[in-house]
Design a protein around this nucleic acid. Structure first.
Lengths: 338, 338
DNA sequence: TAGTTAAATGAAAACGTTTTACATGTTAAT
DNA sequence: ATTAACATGTAAAACGTTTTCATTTAACTA
């Protein structure tokens, strides 16, 4: 609460403000004697340099903004935690932008960087929330940014994710290998890139196995538990019920399991259920959920790392970087009933 | 990326910078004619006012910092989401400070306000991370702040929480009513206020029922799933096994359940398990977890509301505000075995 | 010692706003 | 026509730093 400024400290220590500034940012430039003298005054006065003043001068805010759809989702929370840690050790603070999937919010948070409140953006949604001029080079118009998890449709953007197509394909192959022929997909919203990519993987796996695609078996959810339950309800209504259900998120898979079990089916004997994400609770439900593991720590870590690089002025090659996924076979999938 | 300043806009529109400033912050003071003129220039140039410059002048950063132990914990995530929403609509951004329980980090984030990067603090831990002079009035030395969930040992601080003592007492009473006599407690770390309060509630309930306190039945965990498993292991080793286990978090309760089930016990027939928090997944494990519901939305909402009030300069009565908890009886608790 | 160089410090401008105090122009009232 | 009152606009200072450039001081060298 003290209102001391650098000038006051300078006056107290009988030096110039410049010297005081250097004590913080370039102590090797100031002689031992004055260093001690100034340090003493600083300690005694409890002086705290005002970062806003510094920011104005240096044109760096020391903040980065992370734009995510929902912090309550364990996947996002895990990623954010990793980001926060690394940002912290690099001297950056992270502004949390929870958009609830709302475009207007995405814009708002993106504005933080155009307004100088943040130096870079970590974007976990599928569209660029900046007004850009399509006739100009895109990369030139963007602030330091990396797009995580989702896929923005441009190869000028730095992107980090799991290979959703391959991962979903692997997941479905697991079900096919177990003898399933009627494999349902519970997707995410169709404006979300990751969902579309997983759908592509699903199709591709079926195609490879010469299983005809039945669009009735693809139901659109929205990644959360309730929607899993709802979709399960629709699937059980079908004349030809699926023997396996591949859900594009663990939450939906958990919802599906809950619902089918409530209806008296047993998992995996009657119906196999598979998730995607490998959140903590996937192993804790009964039966434990077979799913695709996403390396949250690594995703978050790589995102922030690439952003920090850009902030340091280094060039970062645009394009996608894939991090390895891993199939986790647990109790919720089993051989197709005969 | 445009580097236009308010002066440039002023020049382009043939008015003074002051007028441009007013177009944003006090449009009613400027005539319709000039308003339009200036607005036009702003739109055409894509001018974005630099908030850092404004912050420096107004001495308001427009940020608040939320200091929490772990964003990955669903309780915290839920609270943060609520905070973020309301902060956003009030025009504030939230800086996320995930401390992992480290004091050093708490200090670091608290420093954001002493350094002018944030205007207020939302504190979800049990100690004040500011250097204060004990001989002076505490309230005077603190920035706008509200303490959520945990309890700082001072009645000069604005605090929001559930009445942990009463809630824990209610929980244990539920177990007692079911006929349990050997009731274990799986606590949180002993430097965490909420854990100590819950322990007090536990004791008080036993005392009311004339059940002697057996310290062997109190095991210290650290609120997460793994520690629940570990503690369960210790409890099952006891000569006189508990017939009910009250865990101070849902995560630990889930861990406990998982472990005792793995050992062949059935819940709740052999052992009742009870949690605290009512996270989403509490209803999704089998059996569904009996627990104490915490109103996350309300807690976060009230915290930010009280902080915003302070930021507006209004006086906020210090002291604790309790929000109502709710006992959720589900499948994991049942009558004591005979 | 004087001369040269290197190291340490200082003065002042700059960063981009907001806001106070004041000046101008306009309208209304006499 | 004169003045008062008001609406609108302006000039300039202030916010708290950093940093360039000039200057002083200290440290060597011959």
């Amino acid at each position: 609460m003290a209102a001391l400024g650098i000038k006051d400290i300078a006056a107290l220590a009988n030096v110039s403000p410049a010297t005081v500034s250097r004590v913080f940012s370039a102590p090797e430039m100031v002689s031992k004697k004055t260093l001690e003298k100034v340090q003493k005054v600083i300690d005694e006065s409890g002086y705290r340099p005002n970062r806003i003043g510094a920011s104005l001068r240096t044109r760096k805010s020391g903040n980065i903004v992370a734009i995510i759809p929902d912090i309550t989702n364990p996947v996002n929370a895990g990623i954010i935690r990793a980001i926060e840690q690394k940002a912290h050790t690099a001297g950056y603070s992270v502004l949390l932008g929870d958009t609830q999937g709302l475009h207007e919010r995405e814009q708002h948070y993106a504005d933080l960087v155009t307004h100088g409140q943040a130096d870079g953006v970590l974007l976990f949604c599928s569209s660029i929330p900046f007004k850009t001029d399509a006739t100009l080079n895109l990369a030139q118009q963007l602030p330091p940014m990396v797009n995580g998890n989702e896929k923005i449709d441009s190869d000028e953007v730095v992107q980090v994710a799991v290979d959703n197509v391959a991962a979903a394909k692997r997941a479905v192959k697991h079900l096919i290998d177990l003898g399933h022929k009627y494999i349902a997909a519970v997707t995410g919203p169709d404006d979300i890139a990751s969902s579309n990519e997983r759908l592509e993987g699903y199709r591709s796996a079926l195609e490879d196995a010469n299983i005809p695609l039945d669009s009735g078996l693809c139901i659109q959810g929205d990644y959360d538990v309730e929607s899993g339950m709802k979709c399960a309800g629709q699937l059980l209504l079908l004349r030809q019920r699926p023997t396996a259900i591949f859900c594009f998120s663990d939450d939906m898979a958990i919802g599906v399991m809950k619902f089918v079990q409530k209806q008296g089916f047993s998992v995996p004997e009657d119906i196999s259920v598979m998730g995607f994400d490998d959140i903590n609770y996937a192993q804790l439900v009964s039966p434990a959920l077979t799913t695709v593991h996403q390396p949250l720590e690594e995703i978050g870590g790589l995102c922030i790392e690439l952003l920090l690089k850009q902030l340091k002025g280094e060039y970062v090659e645009p394009g996608r970087r894939f991090l390895p996924f891993e199939l986790k076979v647990r109790g919720s999938t089993g051989p197709a009933p005969t």
